[in-house]
Design a protein around this nucleic acid. Structure first.
Lengths: 157, 157
DNA sequence: GCTGAAATGGCCTCACT
DNA sequence: AGTGAGGCCATTTCAGC
């Protein structure tokens, strides 16, 4: 990543695309005051520059039977690189883990986990935590409501 | 949401689209063993049924100068509906807040926050927490690494 | 260099089989 | 569900600013 000189037009285009990637160039052009061709040229440039990392379909967790979300704070036994890396790999390979952050503070990792039900989550905790001697402690919070699920980054000043 | 009878072909199509929403129907068809038109018919159905909620561009936080991510646990003063709803609205209107979950446990809310820098986060904490008498306590964890940022839901059995 | 207008080409859509 | 005609949209080209 090297060239993030984005003008206001780029920002406006990005705002449209992160709201709806299927917005046609003509519509965007009308909003930002550019021709459709110019919009598409900029989109192509933004893709190649990596400002637009990818374009994805957002699926409904409910429709897929994944109605439960959990926030889990994980504290590791000893913070050496090998242990942390092993846990990273385990997290990356587990489909239940939607997100994982390696953080400062009392916990080492924060996980956002989705499961079909409570039983699924128990199976998850077993394979992820109880079977892992390097996990000292974990704290689970059940998400009663997803107030905000951020896919959009704040744009503009 | 009422009609989640998805067969294996639907699942396979969804897997393609949540990896890359720009995958053309012909390519998907070759993978799953269907004609392009059949794939598009299914995609249309999945969109109308709400299984595909939307299609969005994923932007690079770095490219937009949002290099810092925080996990914040928030504890409210008194858990009455008015206070909680007010906080919800505040969260929804704040661009720094990427995600927010209302959870069980010692904390009431878990926030995922992105800011350009530490100063930006301090400004955020002031307007969101210190200026809010209903916030009893909050704990910040700085994300040193985004190990996994889940946009993909686990598909299949 | 970036823009807008027009021509080309690709993909989606729809009617029909 | 597959096939093919039609239409829409992205892409390229070219001239102008």
């Amino acid at each position: 990543m090297q060239t993030p000189d984005l003008d206001q037009l780029d920002i406006a285009i990005l705002a449209c695309l992160q709201a709806d990637a299927r917005t046609i160039a003509e519509t965007i052009g009308a909003k930002v005051g550019l021709s459709a061709a110019a919009v598409q040229r900029r989109i192509k440039r933004l893709r190649e520059a990596g400002v637009i990392e990818r374009e994805v379909a957002v699926l409904s967790p409910q429709a897929l039977g994944l109605s439960m979300t959990f926030v889990v704070m994980v504290e590791m036994e000893r913070e050496n690189l090998a242990v942390l890396d092993a846990f990273r790999r385990q997290v990356l390979g587990d489909d239940c883990v939607q997100q994982c952050y390696y953080v400062t503070g009392s916990a080492d990792f924060v996980l956002i986990v989705t499961c079909p039900d409570m039983a699924g989550f128990e199976t998850f905790t077993r394979r992820m935590f109880f079977d892992n001697p390097n996990v000292r402690h974990f704290t689970t919070s059940v998400a009663m409501d997803r107030v905000k699920v951020g896919l959009n980054l704040p744009l503009g000043p």
